[in-house]
């Protein structure tokens, strides 16, 4: 098995996450797509760290994890507050600026 398999797997996960962000209307599901994309990028970083024999990639992945945790907290708080004011978690319903 080549170490490239990890990269291909992370590419597959990234593409699925990106498609989910584009396709799904539920804000929570789209948000989980973002999380999947972040994790796929982390897998790439970890694989490259191993490929180059340098732990810096793992440190960067660690930072990605920390920032993703902060981002999830804020994102979910925004979704909850939109749900409270507009009664819907659908991305299509938040269109106040359009009309």
């Amino acid at each position: 098995m080549s170490i490239l398999n990890y990269l291909v797997l992370s590419g597959i996960l990234f593409a699925i996450g990106g498609t989910a962000v584009l396709v799904r209307r539920n804000a929570i599901v789209a948000f989980m797509g973002v999380e999947l994309m972040l994790n796929a990028a982390n897998l790439t970083l970890v694989t490259f760290a191993r490929m180059h024999g340098d732990l810096t990639g793992q440190v960067i992945a660690f930072f990605v994890m920390v920032v993703a945790a902060a981002e999830v907290v804020i994102g979910l708080a925004i979704i909850v507050s939109i749900f409270r004011t507009r009664g819907s978690a659908s991305l299509d319903d938040a269109s106040l600026l359009k009309s």
Binding site: N39, V46, R50, Q58, A61, F62
Partner: peptide
């Protein structure tokens, strides 16, 4: 999927991550 990724990190010699 997240648990699977954790196992893959450990397989990629990133135990801490």
């Amino acid at each position: 999927v997240m648990v699977g990724l954790a196992v893959m990190y450990i397989a990629n010699e990133a135990t801490f991550l």
